[in-house]
């Protein structure tokens, strides 16, 4: 058993009278790679938002890193790639390096726009997602898959322990999707980052994830997958 990062118990959530999540419980352990799947409207994104505290459950409790969600403060440990990450103004005049560097804004030296330490961390994050060669490109000139890798680097720069992704590859071509999922795998296996990804396409996760959360009519079924790529059994 690894360290428990997320713990949910007796969790229910509904809009008006209809419960979309009905009394579920689960744990997410360090280094897990979890796929959340289900049909449209099966509250996959809602579950992510509950875990991160953007929505409050009607009943039940959620803990992040051992703290009750309401008391959790250490948001640097958490990375979130929302479904609409790529809905920015595509003519925004900013380079890949500026976008990734900006997420370290709390460590910014006021007078220098990007100081040396930040530059190094930015380049390391871009290296991890194989995008260093594009550091001076305008963000709007990249393809959808490349933009998504840049946004991933923007999360990595803060050294998160867990990354939540909500349908990261809608509108991205199949080949780039594979590149992206291989990359996520690398972050999970080599960097030890816990991954939680919402997707409607379970086939992309079969050889990579170690647990699949199926959401169906408010209920949760968990599949534990033995994955020889991971070299461990859960």
């Amino acid at each position: 058993m690894g360290e428990v990062i997320v713990k949910a118990d007796n969790l229910s959530f509904g809009y008006e009278k209809r419960l979309v999540i009905n009394n579920i419980r689960f744990e997410i352990e360090k280094k897990d790679y979890i796929g959340i799947v289900g049909t449209n409207g099966s509250a996959k994104s809602t579950l992510l938002k509950l875990i991160m505290g953007f929505l409050k459950p009607n009943v039940g409790m959620i803990e992040l890193f051992g703290s009750h969600i309401g008391d959790f403060k250490d948001w640097n440990k958490i990375g979130y790639l929302p479904q609409n990450a790529r809905s920015f103004n595509t003519r925004f005049p900013a380079t890949v390096e500026e976008i990734v560097g900006s997420s370290q804004y709390s460590q910014m030296n006021i007078l220098k726009i990007l100081n040396k330490k930040i530059k190094e961390a930015t380049l390391a994050a871009l290296e991890a997602v194989n995008m260093v060669g594009f550091k001076d490109s305008l963000i709007g000139n990249l393809s959808g898959g490349q933009q998504q890798r840049v946004f991933l680097a923007k999360l990595l720069v803060n050294n998160p322990e867990i990354i939540f992704m909500d349908e990261p590859l809608i509108g991205v071509d199949a080949e780039s999707q594979d590149v992206f999922f291989d990359l996520i795998n690398k972050l999970n296996v080599d960097f030890g980052i816990t991954i939680v990804v919402v997707t409607h396409d379970v086939s992309k996760l079969n050889h990579r994830a170690n647990k699949i959360f199926h959401l169906d009519n408010g209920k949760l079924n968990i599949d534990n997958i033995f994955n020889k790529n991971r070299g461990e059994e859960h």
Partner: peptide, 18 residues
């Protein structure tokens, strides 16, 4: 400057980052 840049590029993400 940096915080304004962050908000300008992605206001909802800036909120998430505190």
């Amino acid at each position: 400057f940096r915080a304004l840049f962050y908000i300008t590029f992605d206001e909802s993400d800036a909120k998430l980052r505190g």
